[in-house]
């Protein structure tokens, strides 16, 4: 993790601000996990490296949060990445009628209201 400063969380956020979606991998076990940590969860191993995420995964679970009409509902999803790690996110470009658990999704980096980068997903074409 040469050239990166601060703890794993700060490093991950700095990379996201640079347009990169990173994941940690424990070198000895090959396990990829999220959120970033100072050790591999469950083993305490500290031989960690950053890898570029493929950004591909699927919707493990999904809820639509109602808002006061006419404001449309927004979704909150648990995305299971192909690498095995899991995170909460939002699926952009989707609606309650068509979006389903199991749908393949691809990561993209968006911007929050305060200008901070945010990791989002969108359905893949197939």
């Amino acid at each position: 993790m040469d050239g990166m400063t601060g703890g794993p969380e700060a490093q991950w956020r700095a990379a996201l601000a640079d347009g990169r979606f990173l994941l940690q991998r424990a070198i000895s076990s090959g396990t990829v996990f999220f959120p970033p940590r100072v050790m591999e969860p469950g083993t305490g191993e500290t031989d960690l490296e950053w890898v570029e995420a493929t950004g591909l995964g699927h919707i493990y679970s999904l809820t639509w949060v109602s808002q006061k009409p006419p404001v449309p509902p927004y979704n909150v999803a648990i995305v299971r990445l192909d690498e095995g790690a899991q995170l909460m996110s939002r699926i952009e470009g989707a609606n309650p009628e068509t979006l389903r658990i199991g749908q393949r999704v691809r990561a993209k980096i968006g911007t929050q209201d305060d200008g901070a980068p945010i990791l989002l997903f969108e359905p893949t074409g197939h």
Partner: peptide
């Protein structure tokens, strides 16, 4: 990690389990 996606706390977590 979760807060930016505005899950209703704690309700949306249970919704994700139910779904």
């Amino acid at each position: 990690w979760d807060a930016p996606y505005r899950p209703l706390f704690p309700l949306s977590s249970y919704a994700l389990a139910a779904a």
